[in-house]
Amino acid sequence: MTAWPIPRVSVLTKALPVAFGLLAVVLLSEPDLADRTRLALQTLLVIIWCVYIVQLIATIRTRPAEEGRGAILIVDLLAVAVPLAAFLVASDPRDVSLACGVWILKPLRDSTAFRLVAKVLANEARNLIGVVSIFGIVLIVAAVIAYFVERDAQPNSFGSIPKAMWWAVVTLSTTGYGDAIPQSLAGRVLAGLVMMCGIGVFALWAGILASGFAEEVRRLDFVNKWQLVSAVPLFAQLGAPELAGIVRALRPRHVPAGAVICRKGETGDQMFFIVEGRVGVAAAAPVELGPGAFFGEMALITGEPRTATVTAASAVTLLSLHSLDFQILLSHNPAIAETIRSTAAERGSAKLGS
C-alpha cells in the first residue's frame, strides 16, 4: 500500500475539520432536524473544538518568533474563544453552534494568498484611505442634498440626513435596492451624478488594488528568481546590477522526472541552467548533468538543430534563457561568454552538444 505524501496528509488534516465543522453549523440551522442528528452534529462540533484547543496550545508552545506568527495565533485563539464565549453567554442554543462559524478563518492562517492580500493592503493603505475619504465626502454631500430636495415629498425615506444617507450608500455603490427613490427632477439628477461618482470611486479602488497586486507579485517573482539565479555557480562572479539584469532575462521552469526537456533535431531557441536535480543527455556517450551545469547553448551559438535529447533524470528546476537574451548576456559579460563558449567547444568536439 502506497503511503500518501506528507504535504497531502497535512492539507487534509487542516481542511477536513473546517469543512465538517461548517457543514455541521449549516445543518444545525434547520429547525426540523431530528434530535438524534442534532446531537450527533453538536458532538462533532465539540470534538473539532477540542482539536482546535490542542492546535492553539501547539501554536503557543512550538511556534518560534516568525513573520505571520501573530496572525496565526489570533486565528487559533478566536477558533477556541468565540465558541466558548457563546456557550457561556448565549441564551439561545442555536447561537452556540452559529459561533463555530468563526472556523471559516482557519484556512487563512497558513494561506499565502491572504498574506499577499494583507501585504498589498498595507502597501497601498495611504492611497486606499484617500479613496475612502473621497467616498465619505461624496456620501455626506449626496445625503445632505437629497435630504434638502426630497424631505417634504418623502419624509419616510428622506426625512432626516441618516435616512438620506442610506439612499446615498445604496446609490453610490450602484446597488439600487429600490426602497428609496427620488421623485423630483432635482433628486433624479442627483441620483445620476451619485451613480457616476460611485463608478469612479470603485474604479479607483479596483485600480489601486490591481496595481498593488501586480507590483507585489513582480517583487516576489524577482526575489524567487534571484535566489535561483544566485544558486548557479556561473553567475557567482557577477555584481548586483549584472545579476539583476540576468534575473529579469531568465525564466524559471520546473520539470518532472522523466519529462523531455529538448529533443534532437529540433530548432533551439533557448538554453538552460540547472538549479536543482539532474538531467540525462542522450548523446553518443550519454552523460548526466547536475546543479550548476548548463546545456542547450550550442544550438544558440551555431544556429544548428539540437544534437541530443535531454531528459529530466529527476525532478529538475531550470532557468531558461532565450536566444536574444543569450546574445545580450554574452555581449555584456565576457567572462561568462568565454565559459559558455569553451564548454560548447569541448562538447562539440566530443559530440555532446544539445
Rank of each mutant, 00 (worst) to 15 (best):
I199A: 14
E124R: 15
V25S: 05
K225E: 01
I57V: 15
L318I: 03
V169S: 01
F213H: 01
T267R: 15
S173A: 15
G265F: 05
H322M: 10
E276P: 00
I53D: 05
A186L: 14
P107D: 02
I145S: 09
P17W: 06
W167K: 00
H322P: 00
V279G: 02
L88F: 08
Q237A: 09
A3R: 13
A313G: 15
Q270L: 07
A335P: 05
A65W: 08
Y177I: 12
D325F: 00
A113S: 12
A34V: 00
A122C: 04
A86F: 01
V144R: 06
S184Q: 13
L116R: 14
V194D: 01
L319P: 08
A122L: 09
V18C: 12
T311L: 01
M195K: 12
A86D: 00
I261Y: 02
I261G: 00
V281E: 01
R61Y: 11
A203W: 14
Y177K: 13
R151P: 10
L78G: 00
V217Q: 11
G136V: 08
V149W: 05
I129D: 02
F87I: 03
S29W: 05
D110Q: 13
V229T: 01
P107E: 02
D32I: 03
C262Q: 09
V89K: 05
T59M: 13
E288Q: 12
L108Y: 00
A40D: 08
V201P: 06
L88C: 08
G192V: 08
I53Y: 08
S133A: 12
L41W: 01
E216V: 07
R109D: 06
S133V: 06
W226Y: 14
T13R: 12
E215W: 00
L27D: 07
I328T: 15
G21S: 12
V54D: 09
E30S: 11
I208Q: 02
D221R: 12
V189Q: 04
L172Q: 12
G21T: 03
F148Y: 14
